[in-house]
Computed example of a mutant assay.
Amino acid sequence: MTSPRPTPVDIDALLALLLAGGPSAPLRTLLARCGDAAAVLSADASTWREAGCTPEQCHALRHPDPARHDRARAWLASPDHHLIGWSCPDYPPLLRDSPHPPLAVFVDGDPSVLWQPAIAVVGSRIPSAGGRDNARDFATALLGHGLTIASGLAAGIDAAAHRAALALPGPTYAVIGTGPDLAYPRHHRELQAQVARQGAVLSEYPPGTAPRSGQFPARNRLLAALALGTVVIEAAERSGALITARLAAEAGREIFAVPGSIHNPMARGCHRLIRDGATLVTHADDILEGVANMAGELAQALQNRLSTPTSAAPETPRPAPALPDPDYQRLWNALGFDPTGMDLLIERTGLTAASLSSMLLVMELEGRVSSEHGRYTRT
């Protein structure tokens, strides 16, 4: 699905735009007008000002910081490290359609995971034992239905959700509030590396960006936008998880909250969300019903990106349709009329769980495949 790796010239030009800082909307406008980052840099200052760039941005575009450029280039030298710009076709579609999308994102791991249908699982950094169990159980159940688990790699509920995905193993990605080369909290460095190996770690901040308080609410808007919905498991009345929920609502995403004891202070934020209109959930099926429409929109974007057929399946199923993409054909051949689990499909096809999840979602929406309890059959 990914496009050819950008050239060093492309990367340098995009980095210059990113490192200019300031509001991203004028820079996105310039990319749309000029066609690519190199053309933006070649434009004169009046063009930048006309698009809305601040004086500080104009100065930074003309005089980039070589040390920050060198650090970013060094990080991007790894084949598993990526920079996905606004004008790149691999830019995640749900993020592109959100209220405040970043100009570009740094990705450690597999960028295609960001196109998977995902649920954000968030909550308290100091949850109860029951809250951790709920995070693990919801994440496990959602993974069994072919969904990806997204979170913010924070302590508590976030970490429990990521670890549940890693244990299966299943696809997961983290959206972080530092540069992609730093871990916060620091003791999550190995957890962050594991998430990158099995899925992806995403940041809008250049390598070397240290943690600052304002960056984490900004991080939350990306997490909220990338996921089909956000489920909150234990949150105090003033909580970062509630910020994520509010941002998810602003992005047009579904909000889910797990109720708890009236005596648990970590449940008060969830009860407030439910009172304000969030969907009360007690099991994964409640979430699946709520995100069905958004999943269809994501599947359509994925079909367009992969150039897969968009027509509905015929009324009389064909036992072995000729599919134009060889990976889809391999998956079809691996499926049968008996329910088949994800582990067996991975073994039969040699494809990753992340790739299979996307392909199965597309085929299910086309009417070729049905799923129940995380097992798939031909229709």
Results as ranks from 00 to 15, higher is better:
187 H>F: 07
58 C>L: 03
308 T>F: 01
340 T>L: 15
99 P>Q: 07
65 D>M: 02
117 P>K: 11
241 A>E: 08
291 V>E: 01
191 L>W: 00
42 S>N: 11
245 A>P: 00
25 A>C: 11
355 S>Q: 14
65 D>N: 09
264 N>P: 05
365 L>Y: 14
365 L>W: 15
220 N>K: 01
306 L>Q: 14
100 H>W: 11
97 D>H: 01
320 A>Y: 13
287 I>M: 03
331 L>V: 10
163 R>P: 11
345 L>T: 12
231 V>Y: 06
258 V>F: 03
326 P>I: 01
9 V>Y: 12
157 I>L: 04
215 Q>H: 15
16 A>C: 07
184 Y>K: 04
243 I>N: 09
190 E>R: 10
266 M>R: 09
91 Y>A: 05
268 R>P: 03
15 L>M: 10
278 A>C: 12
310 T>G: 11
309 P>G: 02
8 P>H: 07
271 H>L: 04
187 H>L: 08
276 D>L: 03
272 R>C: 12
122 V>W: 04
147 L>A: 06
84 I>E: 05
149 I>D: 10
17 L>H: 09
80 D>L: 14
185 P>C: 03
36 D>W: 02
345 L>P: 11
335 L>S: 03
11 I>R: 10
324 P>T: 07
304 N>L: 12
121 V>F: 13
224 A>I: 05
194 Q>F: 02
319 P>Y: 01
125 R>F: 12
235 A>D: 09
84 I>F: 00
365 L>G: 15
370 S>Y: 15
123 G>H: 04
300 Q>V: 09
147 L>V: 05
209 T>A: 15
117 P>T: 08
129 A>K: 12
48 W>I: 04
205 Y>K: 13
7 T>S: 06
62 R>V: 14
79 P>A: 10
317 P>V: 11
45 A>F: 09
86 W>R: 04
118 A>H: 06
367 G>V: 08
292 A>H: 00
355 S>C: 14
291 V>P: 01
58 C>E: 08
199 G>L: 02
65 D>F: 05
375 R>P: 10
